[in-house]
Design a protein around this nucleic acid. Sequence first.
DNA 1: ACATCTTCTGAAAAAAATCTTAAAGCCCCT
DNA 2: AGGGGCTTTAAGATTTTTTTCAGAAGATGT
Lengths: 225, 225
Amino acid sequence: MQILLVEDEVSLSNAVKTILERSGYFADTVYDGRTAVEYATGFVYDLIILDVMLPELDGFEVLRILRQKSVAAPVLMLTAKSTVPDKVTGLNAGADDYMTKPFHPDELLARVGALTRRKGSVVINELTYQDLTLNVNSALLTCCGESVQLSKKEFEVLKVFLYNPTMIVTVEMLINKVWGVDSDATDNNVEVYISFIRKKLKYLHSKVAIKKIQCLGYRLEEAKC
Amino acid sequence: MQILLVEDEVSLSNAVKTILERSGYFADTVYDGRTAVEYATGFVYDLIILDVMLPELDGFEVLRILRQKSVAAPVLMLTAKSTVPDKVTGLNAGADDYMTKPFHPDELLARVGALTRRKGSVVINELTYQDLTLNVNSALLTCCGESVQLSKKEFEVLKVFLYNPTMIVTVEMLINKVWGVDSDATDNNVEVYISFIRKKLKYLHSKVAIKKIQCLGYRLEEAKC
DNA sequence: ACATCTTCTGAAAAAAATCTTAAAGCCCCT
DNA sequence: AGGGGCTTTAAGATTTTTTTCAGAAGATGT
């Protein structure tokens, strides 16, 4: 059982982690809202324990973002005060249970047990176009059962296309997104990487091609047969 | 049921001993930390009740020493003040429960009952991927009948992989999970440990390999034959 | 067809990331 | 104090990625 623990008070989070691990759970600890979102979307957890008071993003905000991103793991909210308004806010945002601090270890374990007994669903992060599938966790590009590993830059470039599958992607846009707005990358850098990706598409026998539209940019296209 | 009671206030320890024995437990009483360690390592107890304020060695110190010496008996800490810092210190040191003085005899019996019942249910936890099995109680890694002992860090690193067998595990996540978020471990620490683990996988003739994905991280893979 | 511009691609160079090994440091136990 | 095991640090070797460059190929307009 994998649990993500989001709690900025280090002593408390260490304590909770210890309690959980002694009961056979594995807990990852993060200390702010932004990192919590990163971890919760990057890994699969069976349960997320979320403090309300957090730096960066507060617990409610984190919860809202996660639900919006289809992270379905049950969420146990920790709140210092047991005020009704807080509970209502959390319920509306999609939390599954609450606990007010301070709490007894047994209470924690009881609630965690109740929530993890439910079957959690798995989120897979993939971008798809025609016969291509790009796993955004692993940068693995798959077509008809075959896969190739993309390098970081190849991955970044292809992501821009797959996020905008019907649009013309300009060279400028690629430089901005992949190399950064104030890099000194030239058009040729883009050209070289388009070439690398085309080579991999060919290797995969994909029907998808990156088409050049003279003076405008590139666009994904189903290759003519 | 054998209980070791560590409490220097004679009147209280006598009272607790009486309560316990009236409920069918056998209790040994000691009055200082040093003797507590002697008894706890010399005999087998089903539970240790440990006061925090002790002469010679305080309760936390005793607990730390016992855990270090692999005394696995559940520990119920007694503390005069219910302050959070104390609780946290005890939890980190490996206590199983707390009780703040003064307490009602029924509360004592309830907690003692909970801790001694837990005893029989030691779960054997194993993580498996392909031909590898990692026993999380012993950190023993097994493949096709052969086993090797993992060191603590090797164990922690491999656990991260076995819990995320299909995902890319980033160097950052390994540092966070194994060395801690505010450690000053570098990427090289991770690399060295990946190297150690690979050596052991090779020794075991496992089909599993740790593949590196440049700039992204590592992932478990069944080695190509 | 020619001149000119854009785009593509292979190869080499440069830079960055990663691997491996060995030595040094640390901690615990005797 | 000394030894053993584990961890950290360091440095050179190796591998992969990224950049650069130059010429080939293709398109465009006259």
